[in-house]
Structures are given as C-alpha cells and as structure tokens.
C-alpha cells in the first residue's frame, strides 16, 4: 500500500510517500523558520498562507522523486491535529480534495502519534512495548506505548514545552529565532559548570516536567551577572534541561519495567540529550531509539507511516467530510 502523507500543523510543510512493503519512498519539507524569524515567532496566519503555496509543489516533488504517478497512491494521510487550526485546514483540505479526486480514502492522523511512531522508520526499529519521550517546541510528554494507538500518558510538562524553553532562553540571550538549535551550538563553546541552574521537578517522584522556572532562573542569572558569557549560560541551561529530560525518561523505564526508550520531536536532535540518554540507558541495559535525523522535526513521512498503520487495520469512509482538531489529546486515540 502506497500512502501519501501530508503535515501542516505548524511552521513546516511536509509531504512524503510511504510504501508498507518498500518503506519510505521519498519525502520533502519546506520550513518556514526564516519567514517567522522576522516576527520573533510563528505567526499562525502567515503559516497558513505559506502552507497553501507549498503543498502542491512539494507533492509533485515527492511523486517525481519516487518515480510514482498519482494513480499509484492507495490512500492519503494528513495531520488532523493538534496544531494551528488554519494551518491544519490547509493540509486537510488539499488531502481530502485529492483523495476525493482520486477516489481513495483519506485519514486524519494525530500529529503526536506521527512523532511517537517515527523511530519505526529507522533501522533498527524498536519493538513494542516502549517508553516514548516526545520533546519538541510544543510538547514534552512521556508515554507508555504498547502498540499502535495504545498509549498511556505517564507524565507531561505542567507549563512550557522543553523546546519552548530552549527557544525562549535563546531569545533571552539575544540569539536569532529559533533559539533552540542556537543554544545547543553556543553551548559547545561554553562551560556548563560555570553557573548552577535548578533542575525543576527532577526529584518530584512523578514523571511530570516544568520548564518555566528554569527559564526564569536564566533570566535572573543574566540580570545578576550582566558580564556572563552567553556560551556559559547556554551550556548551563542545556545541561540542566537535558538532565531533567534524561532523569525522567530513565525513571519512566524503571516504572514500566521496559527496556526500550524512543525519543522523538525536534529536541531529539539535540546531541547532548542523545549522548546523555544513550549513556544512562546503557547503564540499566536499555536501548534508545531515535527517528532518522531528518525526521526529528515535523515531517510528512511520520504522518504517512502512522496513517498507514491505521489504514492497515481499518479503512475510513471516503466521503470528503472533514474537520480538524487543533486541541486533541493523544490518549483519546483508539487502538489500531
């Protein structure tokens, strides 16, 4: 089965073709980061306006790269939520129009289910069950994953997402938007132990997170030490955030008794997080799985993949009726 995947929930337009036998055939992505940088953050209306300009050319590029014709597509998967309502509607409208036009089913996919299952696109791929740490600019969650659609929330952030804390700290240090990757880059030249920042909720005994206090601590540090090197502050922040993420992920493994940890979302590209998790997991005999590096951020491949898993279990009605779900709890999903 050949599935076209379409992602447009935030500031990246992603399209991909996934074959349930041959694997990922092709994928293409357009990031709006530069456009939003001038505004200091994602402007939802501008995001929607860009998605609708990109979605057809990206689809054509993906088909061309795979050497596939439109007629070869068996189904279309698109991100139905959560995300920006207007942005989601662009992908949904195009996907549904195309599906009706081709006479094939279209299925709405949960964005986080896409991220959660994206390490299954890597080689080697994890077996179920596993613990998943989802870390991005919009989400920080620990999930118990027993199978497709069988997700139990173990813990989540009570305020800012981890990626958001990276971005906001970057902004505080006067780094260009998005601050997250800039922080990581700067931190490589810094001394993480020059300053001591709090590890919020690290020993709270549960699996929830809080990052807004850490962000405030950085703000206070910079105010009290105006001469502080940005490199050192970035390094101190990064090590604090990573320690909390790794500590909670390890606690989740212990609590579930699982030996597989899956890490997905934009922050999963962070090298310090990866080395820390790999080292700590190895100590307890667990293995950490990541999506291919190109599929850490939002992309169409994970949507095509998650959609395919659902379609293998059950085909939706091809009636062209659609809605988007800007707020959609992952635990509301049914098992496939």
């Amino acid at each position: 089965m050949l599935v076209l995947g379409i992602e447009s929930s935030c500031d990246e337009t992603g399209v991909a073709l996934y074959d349930t036998v041959a694997g990922l055939r092709s994928h293409a992505l357009h990031s709006q980061v530069e456009m939003h940088a001038e505004y200091g953050g994602v402007v939802p209306e501008l995001a929607s306006r860009d998605h609708i300009r990109r979605i057809v050319p990206l689809t054509q590029r993906v088909l061309e790269a795979a050497g596939a014709s439109l007629d070869a597509i068996d189904a279309i998967a698109y991100t139905q939520g959560p995300g920006l309502a207007g942005a989601l509607l662009v992908g949904a409208s195009f996907a549904q129009g195309l599906a009706v036009g081709l006479g094939i089913p279209a299925i709405g996919v949960h964005h986080l289910e896409g991220h959660l299952l994206s390490p299954l696109l890597a080689d080697p791929r994890p077996e179920f069950p596993f613990v998943a740490l989802l870390v991005s600019g919009g989400h920080t969650q620990l999930m118990q994953v027993d199978g497709v659609g069988r997700y139990t929330l173990l813990g989540e952030t009570l305020d800012d997402a981890a990626g958001e804390a990276f971005d906001k700290t970057g902004q505080l240090l006067g780094l260009p938007y998005p601050g997250g990757p800039e922080i990581s880059r700067l931190a490589q030249q810094g001394d993480a132990f020059c300053y001591s920042l709090p590890r919020p909720m690290l020993n709270s005994g549960d699996l929830d997170f809080s990052f807004s206090g850490l962000k405030t601590a950085v703000l206070n540090l910079v105010h009290k030490n105006p001469e502080a090197r940005r490199e050192d502050v970035a390094a101190a922040f990064q090590v604090a955030a990573v320690e909390v993420l790794a500590g909670k992920a390890l606690r989740a493994l212990k609590q579930t008794g699982f030996h597989r940890l899956v890490v997905a979302g934009g922050v999963s590209a962070n090298t310090l997080l990866r080395s820390r998790l790999n080292a700590e997991a190895a100590r307890v005999g667990a293995t950490v799985y990541y999506p291919p590096l190109a599929l850490c951020t939002d992309n169409g491949a994970m949507i095509a993949y998650a959609g395919a898993q659902r379609l293998l279990a059950d085909a939706p009605a091809a009636d062209g009726v659609f809605t988007v779900r800007p707020r959609w709890d992952l635990s509301q999903l049914q098992a496939a």
Binding site: R49, G86, L89, G97
Partner: peptide
C-alpha cells in the same frame, strides 16, 4: 474569511491535481 478561502482553494488544488 481567510480560513474559508483556503478551504475552497485547498480542496480545488487537490481535486484539480487529481482530475
């Protein structure tokens, strides 16, 4: 309506590409 405009346009893009 911005959202409305994109629904007709997006659906049209999909239908026309298929047709």
């Amino acid at each position: 309506s911005f959202t409305g405009l994109r629904i007709a346009c997006g659906v049209t893009q999909g239908l026309a590409l298929a047709a």
